[in-house]
Design a protein around this nucleic acid. Sequence first.
DNA 1: CACTGATATATTTTT
DNA 2: TATATCAGTG
Length: 725
Amino acid sequence: MFSRLDIEEQLNCLNGVQKDAVCTTEGPLLILAGAGSGKTRVLTYRIAYLINMGECLPDEILAITFTNKAAEEMKNRLRELLHIPDKLWISTFHAAGARILRSAINNLGYERNFNIIDTQDQLNLIKECLREQNLDFDIYHPRKVLSIISKAKNELEDEVSYEKNARDFFACKVSDVFILYQKKLKESNCLDFDDLLLLTVKLFQEKPELLNYYQNQFRYILVDEYQDTNMAQYVLVKMLAEKYRNLCVVGDDDQSIYQFRGADIRNILEFEKDYPEAKTVKLEENYRSQRNILEAAFHVVKNNSGRKEKRLWTRKSDGEKVYYFCGRDEREEARFVVDEIKSNQDKFENFAVLYRTNAQSRVLEEILVRENIPYSLYGGIRFYERMEIKDILAYLKLVDNLNDNISLKRIINVPRRGIGKKTMEKLENYALSEGITLFKALQESEKAGISAGIRKKIDEFYHCINNFYNMGEFLSVQELVEKIIEDTGYLDALEAEGTFEARSRMENIKEFVSAAQEFDVSGEGKSLTYFLTEVSLVSSMEVIGETEEDKRVFCMTLHAAKGLEFSVVFIIGLEETLFPHSFSLENPEDLDEERRLFYVGCTRAMNRLYLTHARERSFYGRRTSNLSSRFLEEIPEELIGFASGDKDKEWGKREGAEPLLKKEDTERFLENESWSVGDNVYHKKWGNGIIKKTGVSGEDQVLTVQFPEVGTKVIMATYAPLKKV
DNA sequence: CACTGATATATTTTT
DNA sequence: TATATCAGTG
């Protein structure tokens, strides 16, 4: 424990406003924290202050972050400030909801060992419901229906109240799907992400004594990224904070970038209306970026309507201008980026390349590989979303929760057991008519009218799962996983496949086993249920590619970059229809969100910012040429410098998007695509190989490549996912 | 029931 | 481009 003097000393590293934000512990407090204004620092110090001043005990604080990563980071920082870290409730809304529901969801007719399904499973379930309702996918687009349902849930509308409000024909049909979807979830004892919030609120509504319990426990509540909360989260906070009203929310309306997901910016704009006694603190001093960068970002975001008036300032100098580059196509753009990184004598880890869509990373990656630059790619397919991992998880989920029809259906024929569509139909019908779970129905497959041969297979599967279930108690998660991949023949099946892909799957499974082991060691006898919860909620942005410790260039979407900072930032693909994205062009509100996204991107940069675009790029197979992004035009000309060194070119006229590079410059970036016999190459599907022969067919270069794993293949160099090693 | 190849189709961001 | 779905065959 610190003495009062220690605390004051600790607070000396904060500025006056920050100190104010930390020390105003009682009553509602709104902290408007601009980008780079030391927000995280304020939050962690506030928590440390509360505890060290003896205002409350660690478990009386609830701190909500937007991502698991942010929660982790906050915990780590607090570990340095406090000696008693682990009792704090620091988590995302969803994790907090899951934790509460784990102890009390039986009040809502679910069991405590519920499973959490991810977006993919959600979509499959929606499709299943649509099929059962005989609804045409072309009219009732599954993704669309899912997003309607998800949106409803985030606005605390469950299937019952949605049905009441459904007015037109379409909504009525959606309502039917909603009801069926929810029924299936409940039968399987599964929750989706939205349920974690919706059901927590419901629980509190139906069991006031429970709400009361938590209200008493959480004397101090902090919510980070408040601008990105949705209605369900807003209500949840409001309920919990009602008793003590010691609610501190931190946010920046200019950085609200999740409205597409139901975040409601009004939550922050109207905080003062909800809590009239609230105090507001503005953190406007930016400690991160040089002035030019800040100015450029400001001049873009100021065009948004309905923002809270504010302007960041910095003590730093103007710094360099914002660099601009226009490439001929996306490869030239990528080559420019890589070239700049190489010619700067800076460390790789100081660079970040940000883009609007994950698809843009491919070209970039290609060039980075070719130029031998270590990099990390964030996003894309996440570890726990890989097919093989989801399969193993489905086994675990089923073992942990035998009601889970969703998981059962996923793995009953994985690896192949000869239990196909027809058989499943019979089983499902039987289960439905008897009102039992699918797992139960397996036991009675004879009554379901299934022939003896297949029945044998079903029995085998049943006993296999049953065996896991019975042993589950005595085994660690790692042991259970190992037993599953052995006994089900999952590994054998992969082995038998013998392809490069199968081998990489086995690698991933190995990695999963060690993740399970890690859990067993650190989790101190925590249950399988706990493991599954953790895995379901952790996004764990995966790091793909060369992982030379931390010395690598970071590539990620603009969304993923929120909360991070880098010395040098590239924002690429600044073109109309890409950024701003085409889906946002019709609606001014969506356009504002794109603009905020741009703002977030710019303010990640400390010392240097590059903005690039390409005049032509292939979109989804098709070549398209785009106008340069309107965001570029919104930046005052005097803040812009030309990366190509050509200062005479006119800036920002979209009509006149003539080459901004001189021809010689352009040629510098032109690709020297040469393949020769003997080159070692890497193919996405077939792995490493060696070029045996080169030739030309029409306009395309044809390569004959020998792959040790799969034999010799003839490949079109222009199209194949091929890289030099 | 499993596999193949052809065709269509949509293509953002994440807990 | 990458994936999903479908029809046809083994």
